[in-house]
């Protein structure tokens, strides 16, 4: 017995070493850019020019961060990213919440209140997941113009809600099909109506998928560049567009530390969301609803 298990154990050990080795390698590979960005943002320009890309900063300071936040030039004006950051927040938050909420209602209707053609509708909605941004640009521009919300925060919210709906509906629909529909039947017999069932029975079960939807939508909408550049202008632009302008501003010397700090600032909210809710994200993607 002992002789038999010996080679198997060493075999397993070697396997482990290879797996962990690979994982570490992949980790390093993915973390390297972040490391370079963070260290560079903490260095002075002189140090960057003189030193090695991978060396640690000799005299770490936040000067570059301050500049990126409040005084770097993004085109003609030089007021940093602060204003654009809040621009982004002001349309991302409503866009994420509205698209999640509508997605939840859609999913609820498509699973619990099926009607003739509801599967077809769902199928068509899913095509929405595969439509590239570029395709909708022109029609969307016309639509926003016709609605009188072109170049406004409302317009941008509208665009992102419409584009995100296909995804959020998919999430919620696929989550809700795992909830036994006897639950809704029981509630109907108890006398509850459409919204009451949604609010009291379905929503309380939806926490995992709400987290998934919020993370997904937040990342998508916050990181969006194309819609931002097309459907907003001037000081209404989102941070992604401002970041691009900042990095590409051609006057003066190239300030890598400021660029890096700006890039991290722009990425920080999505990072934050992942760190805070990441484990729910994975859990939500894999979990079905609780039975019971």
């Amino acid at each position: 017995m002992a002789e038999l298990s010996q080679p198997r154990d060493t075999g397993r050990l070697i396997g482990r070493v290879i797996v962990y080795g690979l994982l570490v390698l992949v980790c390093v590979y993915y973390l390297m850019p972040l490391f370079v960005m963070v260290t560079t943002s903490l260095k002075s320009l002189d140090e960057i020019r003189a030193g090695n890309l991978l060396s640690l900063p000799q005299d770490p300071n936040l000067d570059a961060w301050g500049k990126a936040w409040s005084s770097a030039c993004t085109g003609i004006q030089c007021e940093g990213l602060a204003g654009f950051f809040w621009n982004s927040v002001s349309f991302v938050v409503p866009a994420v919440l509205i698209s999640t909420l509508i997605g939840a209602v859609n999913g609820y209707v498509l699973t619990m209140w099926r009607f003739r053609g509801s599967d077809l509708l769902f199928g068509m909605l899913m095509i929405g997941c595969f439509i590239p941004f570029q395709v909708v640009l022109l029609p969307m521009a016309r639509t926003l113009g016709a609605m009188g919300i072109a170049n406004s925060t409302t317009g941008l919210v509208f665009v992102h809600v419409v584009y995100g709906l296909a995804f959020t509906t998919l999430f919620f629909r696929n989550y809700y099909v795992t909830i036994p529909d006897e639950l809704v039947k029981a509630a109907k017999i108890d006398g509850a109506g459409f919204w009451l069932i949604f609010r009291r029975i379905i929503l309380p079960l939806s926490a995992p998928i709400i987290v998934v939807s919020i993370i997904w939508q937040f990342t998508q909408v916050w990181n969006d560049f194309l819609f931002g550049v097309v459907f907003s202008s001037g000081d209404r632009q989102p941070i992604t567009v401002a970041l691009n302008n900042l990095v590409n501003t051609s006057t003066g010397v190239k300030e890598y530390n400021v660029d890096m700090a700006a890039a991290i600032i722009a990425a920080l909210p999505t990072l934050f969301v992942y760190v805070v809710a990441g484990k729910y994200f994975v859990r939500g993607l894999t979990a079905g609803a609780v039975k019971g």
Partner: peptide
């Protein structure tokens, strides 16, 4: 009549208890 107006109650095979309550 809708279920709520029929003056009935039902017990389901899966019990269908509201999980969050």
């Amino acid at each position: 009549l809708s279920p709520k107006d029929r003056d009935i109650a039902m017990v389901f095979q899966s019990y269908a208890l509201y999980p969050s309550m």
